[in-house]
Amino acid sequence: MRVLGIETSCDETAVAVYDSQHGLMSHQLYTQLPVHQQYGGVVPELASRDHIRKILPLTRQALKQAHSAWSDIDGIAYTAGPGLAGALLVGAVFARALGFSLNRPTLGVHHLEGHLLAPFLESTPPVPPFVALLVSGGHTQLFYVSAIGHYRLLGESLDDAAGEAFDKVAKMLGLGYPGGAALAALAEQGKPGFFTFPRPLIHRPDLNFSFSGLKTAVLQAWKKSGQTDQDKANIAYAFQEAVIDTLLIKTEKALMQMHSTRLVVAGGVGANTLLRTRLSACLEKMQGQVFYPRLEFCTDNAAMIAYAGWHYLKEGKQDADLAIRVKARWELQNG
């Protein structure tokens, strides 16, 4: 079965083709970053306007890259939420209309399930059950995944997501938007021993996170410092240590609680080198395994949506009726 995947939940337009036999056959992505950068955040109306210009050209490119004709597509998966309602609608309406015109089944996919399943696109995919750490721009969550489709939320951020904290601190330090990766790069120039920031909630038995206090602590430290380039790097270093440490402690706790030695990491912050190094070391110590998506599939993409959709479409699951629905807010939690 060959599935076309479509992603338009935020500020990337993406289309991919996944096939039962050939695996991932193509993936195309257009990032609107330059459009939103000047505003320091995503402007929903501009995002939607860009999606509708790009969706069909990208689809044609994805088909071409997959050496496929329209009629080779057996099913269509699209992100139905969560995300920006107007942006989601462009992808959903296009996908459903295309499915209608080709007389092929369609399925709305949960964006976060897409993220969680991204490591399945790699050559050694994880085997459930496992614990999953989802760390993105909008989410910081720990799940227990007993099987694909069965996600039990173990804990989550009570305020800012880890990626959001990275971005806010980066903005504070003048590193632009979204500055998570730039902040991580700067942290490499930083030295230990100058600043320390709190590890929120780590002594609590639950698996929740809180990152909003961290940015206030960072702001105060920055104001009190000499504000040299080295100070900036040292602060970046200490901030990254605090976030990664917190993620590590809670993830370890989750693995112990669930008696699991398999971990899946997904979402944009999953591209962070320090996070990967620490988690890999942790799992090695437990004689367990950790699974990551390739770097480009940590952030939003359609390959993960095509894969997630394929998983259900091949079992005959599809949109129940012709009504097109998107869900800007949508919990991923079903046992």
Binding site: S48, I52, V93, R96
Partner: peptide, 16 residues
């Protein structure tokens, strides 16, 4: 939003 719904519907119905 309404305009984009109509446009993406037209695109999806017409392209193939």
């Amino acid at each position: 939003t309404g305009l984009r719904i109509a446009a993406s519907l037209a695109q999806g119905l017409a392209c193939a």
